[in-house]
C-alpha cells in the first residue's frame, strides 16, 4: 500500500487507457504525456500498461507502507524522498515508512510516478485509469490507501534513462489538416499557421481551449468521431483541442489533428503557454 497524505493539485491513477469502449461513448483516458509515462515504467522494467500516478501542477505527498522501487519522469517537481532531493529518470529504492514529497512543477506540467509492480486498484472496463462516472473517483480526492503490486525490480548500479530531445518549452505543435480544414479561407489558414496562440485557463484532461479566437462563421457538422489531438473550431471561433479524457464524438468542424508527439508536448503546457502550429503536409 501507499498512503496519500496530501493529494496535490490534480493527481490521478492512469494506466495505458481504456481502449475498447469508445463505441459506447467512453473516452480512452490514459496518460496525458504517453512518452513520460512510458519512460517512468520502463526505468523499473514495468510493463507498458502498468498503472502510475499522473501528478499535475503540484504533486502529492506519499507515505510508503511497503519496500519497493520508484521512478519519476516528466515535469520537474523538486521531488524529495525523506527530505532529500531525488532525480527524474532514475530508479530509487524506498522502504516502509519513507515519505515522498513532490513540489510544484518548474519545467513542464505533468509528472509520472511509477512504482515497481504498479498500482493495483480495481479495473473497470479493462482499465485502472480514473474517469468520473466509470471508476468510483475521477481522481485522487482525499487521503487514501492505494494498493500496489509486488516489486521484482533488480536495479543495475548507476543506470539512469534520460529521454533525448525533451524540450517542454518548444512552442511548435505539428498538425495534420483535419477533415474540415478545407472549409477555412486563406486568411483564416494564415492566421492559424502564422500567429502565436496561447493556452487559456480552460485546460484539463478533457480538453485545452486556446485564448485567441478565430474570426469565422463556420457551420456545425453532423456529429462525427473525434480522437485525442483533434482541434475543433466552435461557431464563435474558439479553438478546442480534445485531450485524453475528451468526448468521443463532436459536432464542430475539425480543422487540425495533432500528431502523437505534439499531444505529449501539449500535455506539459498550461495556462498562458505560447504555441504555434506547423502544418504537416504528409502523414
Amino acid at each position: 500500500m501507499i498512503e496519500i497524505i496530501r493529494r496535490g493539485i490534480y493527481t490521478s491513477i492512469q494506466d495505458a487507457g481504456r481502449f475498447n469502449y469508445q463505441n459506447i461513448g467512453v473516452p480512452i483516458s490514459g496518460p496525458m504525456d504517453q512518452q513520460a509515462f512510458g519512460i517512468a515504467n520502463q526505468i523499473l522494467n514495468n510493463a507498458y500498461n502498468t498503472a502510475v500516478l499522473e501528478c499535475s501542477f503540484m504533486g502529492p505527498k506519499i507515505k510508503f507502507h511497503k519496500n519497493t522501487y520508484i521512478s519519476i519522469a516528466g515535469a520537474e517537481m523538486n521531488t524529495e524522498l525523506n527530505g532529500e532531493k531525488i532525480k527524474s529518470y532514475t530508479p530509487y529504492k524506498v522502504n516502509e515508512g519513507d515519505i515522498l514529497s513532490m513540489g510544484t512543477s518548474q519545467y513542464g506540467c505533468r509528472t509520472y510516478l511509477s512504482i515497481s509492480g504498479g498500482i493495483k486498484t480495481e479495473k473497470v472496463l479493462g482499465s485502472r485509469s480514473q474517469f468520473k462516472g466509470i471508476t468510483s473517483e475521477g481522481n485522487i480526492t482525499k487521503k487514501v490507501l492505494i494498493p500496489i503490486g509486488k516489486s521484482d525490480f533488480i536495479p543495475k548500479v548507476g543506470v539512469s534513462l534520460k529521454p533525448i530531445n525533451i524540450d517542454y518549452e518548444n512552442e511548435i505543435l505539428e498538425v495534420y489538416p483535419g477533415p474540415e480544414f478545407k472549409i477555412l479561407d486563406n486568411t483564416q489558414k494564415k492566421i492559424l499557421l502564422e500567429n502565436i496562440h496561447h493556452i487559456s485557463s480552460l485546460n484539463n484532461r478533457m480538453a485545452f481551449r486556446l485564448e485567441e479566437k478565430l474570426i469565422c462563421k463556420l457551420p456545425e457538422i453532423w456529429t462525427s468521431p473525434v480522437i485525442p489531438g483533434t482541434i475543433q473550431c466552435t461557431p464563435d471561433g474558439s479553438l478546442i483541442i480534445i485531450m485524453r479524457d475528451g468526448q468521443v464524438t463532436g459536432g464542430y468542424p475539425r480543422i487540425f489533428q495533432l500528431n502523437k508527439r505534439s499531444i505529449n508536448l501539449l500535455s506539459q503546457k498550461t495556462t498562458q503557454s505560447p504555441i504555434r502550429f506547423k502544418l504537416l503536409s504528409k502523414v
Binding site: 481502449f19 453532423w222 462525427s224 468521431p225
Partner: peptide, 19 residues
Amino acid sequence: VLLCRIGYRSLLIQLNKKI
C-alpha cells in the same frame, strides 16, 4: 483494425499499424 466508430454519416477506422 484496432477500432471502428460511427457518426451520423462517417466512420472512423484506427489500425494497429501505419496506413
